[in-house]
Design a protein around this nucleic acid. Structure first.
Lengths: 224, 224
DNA sequence: CAAATTTAATAGTATTACTATCAATTTTGC
DNA sequence: GCAAAATTGATAGTAATACTATTAAATTTG
């Protein structure tokens, strides 16, 4: 996938940033190193001041790109879901069988990211870890409704809608196509978290993947 | 359920608090009003200073019960899950049919709390809202592994284990009994959140409950 | 090469998440 | 009923956070 993706720009809702970080070298360093730093110390301890030190730049310069660290998280998560969406569309487009298509789509949204290949300044493995550990914090806020109106979550919602449509193609009468789609995507992040921190309440492990679990779950749900 | 529960003390892991809030009037006011205040302004904006003002007490007095607001959240969530666990055990104990038992258990862990009856100083409806909006924040931290070792999440894990055992009673060969149990409990909170804030990616609503969705999902998963 | 833009440096603010100390009040044990 | 013990309240203080504002230096661009 490398050659294709490296020429593509992942598109993030414009209102999330003050100045497009893809438009400058400093911007790309902000994105690249924020991923490394959030992965290292966690989003709660992450500050623009610490990031400034890491990239040899100034706190105030970072504030010209993002008005808060919360907006930066929204940027990273939107970028991540847009990247997953691209993979989903690309890797299912040539599959004629709707069930195969759905199984492939579930694989794409539930698998562990194991390679950091597609974009030079972005470590996709660590970004995936950030999504597992921090994604919920981007919407579990008192501002969620106004931010949703601003379009900050469109990419995530569109991804879920795509999965839903694949399910409805197989069984238009299934009553919970949206709910199972949102459960797969959120649930997969949760299972990945559990296998790292609460092994006693998951069956997933190095050898048993969330992918298999959610594929079986979905097929059984919609085919009966 | 009122008469029975009001005489019972919900038991929370002792290390979570410095001084048992159930042991004094001030302690109960801390718990009672923290639920109201967190529900009102959200956990992120919640501080012990604001809580002190609300209950006509001092910030420093609250610190004698909990060493941080994070610990207070752990207390509230443990209390909540212990209360749910009690309901689960109580309301399934006299059901002889394993499938009926499981369906009842799923109902208990996925339903909306609509009544505030059981404990005088605790508003169970608002506490349920806090669990929906803030629970993830209690474990999505860099300290999760050490806090897990301290036993701060035992109640939650035990609840999931109980559900898992009910599933295994019906089908001992089902490979994902733990994963589906954790998915039901976390997923139900997520569906409740979605129906309040992201209606386009859920089928749940005033009339369609997460309970029905997860009951069907589970039965289809384990019976095939 | 001058003007415009971007970045860096510094300073400042209100708030947060605490800790420490001591006084006032309440509880308790005899 | 009272002294001792425990609890609570009031005040002060600290380092860090999450910013904003201003001005200077460096870089880009037309």
């Amino acid at each position: 996938m490398k050659s294709l993706l490296s020429t593509i720009k992942i598109s993030v809702p414009e209102k999330i940033f003050l100045k497009d970080p893809e438009s400058s070298d400093l911007g790309k360093r902000i994105i690249g190193h924020s991923i490394l730093l959030i992965d290292e110390i966690g989003f709660d301890s992450f500050t623009f001041k610490k990031l400034g030190t890491k990239i040899g730049s100034n706190e105030s310069s970072i504030y010209r790109y993002f008005e808060s660290k919360h907006k930066l998280l929204l940027y990273l998560t939107s970028w991540y879901w847009a990247w997953i969406e691209y993979q989903l569309v690309f890797s299912t487009s040539n599959l004629p069988n709707p069930t195969e298509k759905l199984l492939k789509a579930i694989e794409v949204v539930t698998r562990t990211i194991k390679e950091d290949n597609d974009f030079l300044h972005i470590n996709e493995i660590k970004l995936n870890q950030i999504i597992i550990n921090e994604y919920s914090k981007s919407y579990l806020t008192k501002e969620v409704d106004s931010e949703n109106k601003e379009g900050y979550f469109v990419v995530y919602k569109r991804l879920i809608t795509r999965l839903r449509d694949m399910i409805l193609t197989i069984n238009a009468d299934y009553k919970y196509a949206s709910s199972i789609s949102s459960t797969i995507i959120e649930g997969a992040l949760h299972q990945h978290f559990l296998k790292e921190h609460f092994t006693s309440i998951t069956d997933c492990s190095e050898t048993v993947t969330p992918t298999k679990f959610f594929q079986e779950l979905t097929i059984n749900a919609i085919k009966s």
